[in-house]
Computed example of a mutant assay.
Amino acid sequence: MRRRPAPAALLLPLALLLAACGGNSAADTSSGGRTDGKGSFTLDVGDQKGGSEAVLRAAGELKNLDYKIKWSTFTSGPPLLEAVNAKAVDVGGVGNTPPVFAAGAGSKISVVAAWHGTSKGEAILVPKDSSLKNPEELKGKSIAVAQGSSAHYQLIASLKKAGLTLGDVKVKYLQPADALAAFTSGKVDAWAVWDPYTSQVLQAKQGRILTDGDGVVNGLSFQVAAPSALKDTKKAAAIKDYLERLRRAQDWVYTHPQAWAKVWAKDTGLPYEVALASVKRTNASRIAVAVDKPLIASEQAIADTFTGLKLIPRKVDFAGFVDTRFNDSLPPSTSTPRVFKES
């Protein structure tokens, strides 16, 4: 059967279509990228398109570095964590699900920093003219989702809240590019996805939110380091400084949403309106939080869920994959994210 192509306005840049929050991913596309800073010591940092490097540069946090940062860009979290495991990268940023799968694979990784934001961008979308009004009506319907992604867990949790299980729906495991085409051509009844895809569909008026992940999933994102780097005194000190710069940059995003949206749009190819909507809905809300016991318990619940579904081959003890040395005086991971207010 031929598939009608999605409208051009809905086709996100390739870099973002590949950059799933987890699950099956494209191959590592680390580029060896640019190098910032000065001095003989180098910190190897893994990044994703429109990620840490872009926000640090926009916020002016790459100035006065007394060490070098060598940037490597990856298509998504899983290959980035593979590089961390291989000691090719010292530290890098990912969403809440890739560390669970890396832990399940026995990778040598340590979660060293966390941010807590709203999960309003984690949504189950339905076409604008869909007859579905609430999640309970998803029973028997077809839903597209990227396998093993943060959206996959959000789908499971949202169905559970509605009294349903994955067995009650027809799950279509599709990566974002194929899921977008299936959604806009009516091949599926719903799509479980994350921002900026959520904002893209809403801005194009091609769909609406049936339910979102706020209060259902943990809304966490992480910086993950190689244990070998943490054992190196110089690298550990550089990682501490790097994390402090990231925390300040996130504060800058909250107070400068339009400026960050312009940078993000230019860096990724997103339309400015979509980038700004995503920043206001999701990105600006994030606050730096401690890597603590509630965080570990929340990630453990995700791991146990995927183990139960046999998507992770063995029991995971997530507590063995964190390092709390950089918590300082940060608020607990359960702290309420910021609410963006229009100026």
Rank of each mutant, 00 (worst) to 15 (best):
V91S: 01
N64Y: 05
K120V: 07
A59K: 02
K70Y: 07
S110K: 15
Q154P: 11
V145S: 09
S131T: 13
I69K: 05
I156M: 12
S52Q: 13
G60K: 05
D44Q: 15
V84T: 12
H116F: 04
A123N: 06
L65Q: 08
T97C: 15
D129W: 14
A88N: 14
K139L: 11
N85H: 08
K133W: 13
Q147A: 10
D66P: 00
N85T: 08
L138A: 04
G51W: 00
A162N: 09
W71P: 09
G163A: 09
V89R: 00
G92K: 01
F101E: 00
A59S: 05
D66I: 03
L81A: 06
G117A: 07
A88L: 14
G104V: 02
A162Y: 03
Q147D: 06
G77R: 04
E137D: 12
I124V: 02
T75C: 12
L138V: 06
S107Q: 11
S142M: 09
G60C: 05
L65G: 04
V89F: 04
V91Q: 02
T42P: 13
G117F: 05
A86H: 06
G77V: 00
A54K: 01
A123I: 02
K133C: 11
K49D: 14
G50R: 09
T97Q: 15
A144K: 09
A102L: 13
G121W: 11
P78Q: 04
V89S: 02
E82C: 02
V126R: 03
K87R: 15
L132F: 14
L80Y: 03
A162P: 05
F74H: 01
F41Q: 15
D129L: 10
A102N: 10
T165Y: 09
K49M: 14
P135L: 15
D47V: 01
K128Y: 11
A144W: 11
G140D: 13
P98W: 01
G104W: 01
K49P: 11
L166S: 10
F41V: 12
A86L: 00
L56E: 05
R57D: 06
G51Q: 08
Y153D: 08
G60T: 07
K63N: 14
T118E: 13
R57N: 04
L43N: 02
V145F: 14
N134S: 13
L125G: 06
S158Y: 03
P99N: 00
N64C: 08
K70T: 10
Y67V: 02
I69Y: 03
S110W: 01
N64S: 13
I124R: 04
K70C: 12
G167D: 10
A113P: 12
V45C: 12
K160C: 11
K63Y: 09
T73D: 13
A54Q: 06
P98T: 05
N64H: 11
V55G: 10
F74W: 08
F101N: 05
L80H: 00
L62P: 01
F101R: 06
L164M: 10
H116V: 04
L125I: 05
G148N: 06
W71R: 11
G77T: 01
E136D: 14
G117M: 07
H116Q: 14
K161R: 15
L43W: 00
P78G: 05
I124T: 03
L81Q: 00
L65T: 05
S149K: 01
A146R: 12
P79Q: 10
Q48N: 14
S150V: 09
K141Y: 13
V100S: 03
L65S: 07
A144H: 10
T118L: 15
Y67T: 08
A151H: 08
N96V: 12
G60N: 08
S131M: 13
S149D: 01
